[in-house]
C-alpha cells in the first residue's frame, strides 16, 4: 500500500471509529502537528456528523448536571502551555524564562543518551509529589514522580512516541514567575528518569505536562508544541 493510500485508510479508520486505541493516540498526536492532516480529518468528520445530527435529543435528568457541576467545582482548568492559543493572562505559562532557568533547561535537554543505571534508580527516597498525566480522552497516559533531588521518574501508561523528526518534552511549572521549565526530552514512551535543573521542591498541585516539540527540544525554551498529556501533582500519603 502506498503512503497516500495508507494515509487515506488511517483517516477513514479514525472517522468511523475502527482504529485501535493505541493507534488513536498516535494519530491524534500527528493531528496536533500536521495541519493538513487535521484539515482533511475535520472535513470528512464534518460530513459524517450529519449522521450524528439525526440522533433525537433525549431528555436529560437534572442529576446529570448536578454531578457535572460538583465535579467542575473541584476541577481546576489547567493552564495549558500551548502557544497555539494566545495567553489568557499575563502571568500564565508564557512568562519568559529567567536566563538561569533557560540555561539549565538547555543543559538537561540532552534527552536520550542516559546511562542504563540512571534509568531505573532515581533515588532511594520516596517521591515528594506524584502527578498522573492524562490526554484529551482523560485516560491516564503517564505518571510523573518528582523527587527532592530535582529528578523525575516518568512511567508511561500508554504507547506514545514522537513522529519522525520530533521529540516529547516534559515540563513543569514551579511557579508563575519562573514560568515553564523543561525537565528533558525523549522520543518514545518508556520508563525513564530525567534530572532537571535545580528547582524549588515540587509542590502539591504543581503542573506537569508533556508536549510534542521539534527534534532537539523546544527551540524557545518554553513549550511550543501541542500538549499531549498534563496533570497536577498530589502528595503521596505514605
Amino acid at each position: 500500500m502506498n503512503s497516500e493510500a495508507l494515509r487515506a485508510q488511517r483517516i477513514a479508520d479514525y472517522i468511523v471509529g475502527a482504529m485501535e486505541e493505541h493507534d488513536v493516540a498516535q494519530f491524534e498526536a500527528e493531528l496536533a502537528t500536521d495541519r493538513h492532516l487535521a484539515d482533511d480529518v475535520r472535513e470528512l468528520e464534518r460530513k459524517f456528523s450529519a449522521l450524528d445530527d439525526t440522533a433525537k435529543a433525549e431528555a436529560v435528568p437534572d442529576r446529570l448536571w448536578q454531578s457535572i457541576s460538583e465535579r467542575v467545582q473541584t476541577t481546576e482548568q489547567p493552564k495549558a502551555a500551548n502557544s497555539n492559543t494566545p495567553p489568557r493572562t499575563k502571568a500564565g505559562w508564557t512568562t519568559t524564562l529567567r536566563p538561569a532557568a533557560m540555561a539549565a533547561s538547555l543543559v538537561i535537554a540532552v534527552g536520550l543518551g542516559f546511562a542504563g543505571g540512571m534509568l531505573t534508580q532515581p533515588d532511594e527516597e520516596p517521591p515528594v509529589v506524584i502527578a498522573v498525566l492524562s490526554g484529551d480522552d482523560m485516560r491516564p497516559g503517564a505518571i510523573v514522580e518528582a523527587f527532592a533531588n530535582d529528578s523525575v521518574r516518568i512511567v508511561p501508561l500508554e504507547a506514545l512516541s514522537a513522529p519522525q523528526g520530533q521529540v516529547l518534552e516534559v515540563w513543569t511549572l514551579p511557579d508563575e514567575e519562573t514560568g515553564p521549565v523543561s525537565l528533558g526530552t525523549f522520543a518514545e514512551a518508556r520508563e525513564l528518569v530525567l534530572t532537571g535543573p535545580s528547582l524549588p521542591a515540587p509542590q502539591p498541585d504543581q503542573l506537569y505536562e508533556i508536549t510534542l516539540e521539534p527534534e532537539g527540544g523546544s527551540p524557545t525554551g518554553r513549550p511550543t508544541g501541542p500538549v499531549l498529556l498534563l496533570g497536577n501533582a498530589r502528595v503521596p500519603q505514605v
Binding site: R42, E45, R71, V72, Q77, N82, N84
Partner: peptide, 24 residues
Amino acid sequence: VQEAFVLIWQRASQFDSGRGRARA
C-alpha cells in the same frame, strides 16, 4: 456525557476556534 463535560471544562482553552466549530 458527564466525562465529556468535565473534559470540555478542562480543555476549553485548547479549542482552536480558527480551525473548526465548537459543536464538532
